[in-house]
Write a protein that binds this DNA or RNA. Structure first.
Length: 501
RNA sequence: CGGGGUGUAGCACAGCCUGGCUAGUGCGCUUGGUUUGGGACCAAGAGGUCGCAGGUUCAAAUCCUGUCACCCCGACCA
């Protein structure tokens, strides 16, 4: 049996494997604050790449960045009934504005605030109230703004990247003069997310609409992209909401239209978070650790000089340094190739595994033997393939090689999803699909089930019992009517059912 | 908020039931040597108010009381 860098393997214990990959790749760790993570340089660098690319896509679709306060007056949250209900249970609340020594000398909060502030769990209310001041005429619309920020949701149970009390994200908030325009914006940004997921993260996603039960608190419609992780569970990777006039009415975003009538604006909001890093890990990584799609990898290739003596070092290092410069002059994915040299004084095997676990797409070992042949010994992270490559050929083909890895990762993920997606029309099949063989230690089972359905108490009870959720109603290829697999009631569209994160 | 568990070196743990000398083991770290193209070996070192507070005792990591923190299982969730 081949030794794997990560213990346990995915098949043995997927959740534990996930934690170990993060640890081995040095992406993040738990902090001294309950539920909050420290994102370490390698992990943050991936987030920076995500930010950079998405930011470009937002700008290209006409959006600008701005920044709104971290604190929201408690009364703001209260203005939209569903919104309050959705978020009130998980808010961090600021009630005081200074500390003072207590009777026993320990610091205690002093000077209560007149109105408590909540730390934003999302910014619809504070941004909406700002827009209300900005908008008077139809000429002030649309407002197309995005903010990169942190938000806090006091969750009961947390997991690195997937669900933390504080997380980083972007939230787009737009206001429009007509419903049609706002709906178009909602769908456009859903498209941007799907494009990013598939072409940059190499993660195939299903675009769909959320059912009423899964809708964002206060939204008219919520759309999402859903990906399948390697344990066949679903992960929501991005959401786009059509908010109708719910928030504009609550926050009084009013404008005078061309006919001189007062109208409420139509708003949208959309976001993705550091959860994408979790999605990336669970989509591609293997039992030797992280596997990164080249387009988002902090480094595309690591050069590993090999030598035994100072004399060999003097020969190898200049060779490696000049190769690094040549590689970095090559174009890839709208930028340059990102190369690094690891010349640390540690053993070759250990150093190699270090980069395997961190998911660097390509590793090149370069020693005196390679230099004699004017080449490198190249290893591919996704397939494990290794071969000698001539130096100039490597430089000439580096971008193409990275593209191949990018495509391979996407195809591999797509194949997994297709192999584990089923059309299901009967309750028996549904139960068989979602019931593990071993209830005590559930094996990886199930996947996506495409089913006709009818929302209601019966379905809710069944889903709750089996820990299955309705992920979304796919937008594409979903036009054939049928009957609910549970109740037999008529159903216009199928939904994706799956166990989920 | 219910049920269970754990706090001992940077990390993972043993020791506690049955109190006893300068509190151990592995990994990691430092130094020296032998090694080196897929996770080396030998040797010598550094590193701990045993979560915190109080109590019992000649003597507490160990027993008692209180307290805090964290983890796991549920309900909640991007």
């Amino acid at each position: 049996m081949a030794k794997t860098a990560i213990t346990p393997t995915r098949a043995d214990d997927y959740p534990e494997w996930y934690q170990q990959v993060i640890k081995a790749a040095d992406l993040a760790e738990n902090s001294d604050v309950r539920g909050c993570m420290v994102i370490k340089p390698w992990g943050y660098s991936i987030w920076e790449n995500i930010q950079h690319v998405l930011d470009g896509m937002f700008k290209a679709t006409g959006h600008e960045n701005a920044y709104f306060p971290l604190f929201i007056p408690m009364s703001f949250l209260q203005k939209e009934a569903d919104h309050v209900e959705g978020f009130a249970k998980e808010c961090a609340v600021v009630t005081h504005h200074r500390l003072a020594p207590g009777p026993d000398g320990k610091l205690v909060p002093a000077s209560p605030l007149e109105e408590p502030l909540i730390v934003r769990p999302t910014s619809e209310t504070i941004i909406g109230s700002t827009y209300a001041r900005w908008v008077e005429s139809y000429r002030d619309l649309p407002i197309l703004i995005n903010q990169w920020a942190n938000v806090v949701r006091w969750e009961m149970r947390t997991r690195l990247f997937l669900r933390t009390a504080e997380f980083l994200w972007q939230e787009g908030h737009t206001a429009h003069a007509t419903a049609e325009e706002a709906v178009e914006e909602t769908m456009k940004m859903l498209g941007v997310y799907a494009d990013f997921a598939e072409n940059w993260m190499a993660m195939p996603v299903i675009k769909g609409e959320k059912t009423a039960g899964e809708r964002f608190p206060g939204a008219v419609n919520t759309y999402a992209i859903e990906g399948m992780m390697q344990d066949r569970k679903a992960l929501q990777a991005g959401t786009s909401h059509f908010l109708g006039q719910n928030f504009s009415k609550a926050q009084q975003i009013k404008f005078q239209d061309q006919a001189g009538q007062q109208q409420f604006a139509w708003t949208t909001s959309w976001g993705v978070s550091t959860r994408l890093v979790g999605a990336l890990i669970m989509t591609h990584s293997d039992d030797d650790g992280l596997v990164l799609p080249p387009r988002l990898a902090p480094k595309h290739i690591v050069l590993l000089p090999i030598y035994r003596s100072p004399e060999e070092r003097a020969q190898v290092l200049p060779y490696v340094e000049s190769l690094k410069k040549e590689l970095e002059a090559q174009d890839f994915a709208g930028g340059k190739v990102r190369a690094m040299i690891d010349d640390r004084d540690i053993r070759g095997g250990e150093k190699n595994w270090y980069h395997v676990k961190r998911g660097v797409p390509l590793r090149a070992e370069i020693g005196p033997k390679d230099i004699a042949k004017n080449g490198v010994f190249l290893a591919r992270r996704d397939t494990g393939e290794k071969a000698g490559v001539e130096r100039s050929a490597l430089v000439a083909t580096i971008a193409q090689r990275l593209d191949e890895i990018q495509n391979n990762l996407f195809q591999r993920a797509l194949q997994l999803r297709e192999e584990n997606t089923r059309t299901i029309d009967t309750l028996d099949d549904f139960l068989a699909y979602f019931t593990p063989q071993d209830a005590d230690k559930p094996e990886i089972h199930g996947g996506f089930a495409l089913c006709h359905f009818s929302e209601g108490a019966e379905l809710d009870a069944l889903l709750k019992e089996h820990k299955v959720t309705i992920r979304c109603i796919p937008l594409a290829g979903n036009d054939e009517a049928g009957r609910c697999f549970l109740t037999g009631r008529e159903s216009k569209k199928r939904a994706v059912f799956a166990k989920a994160y």
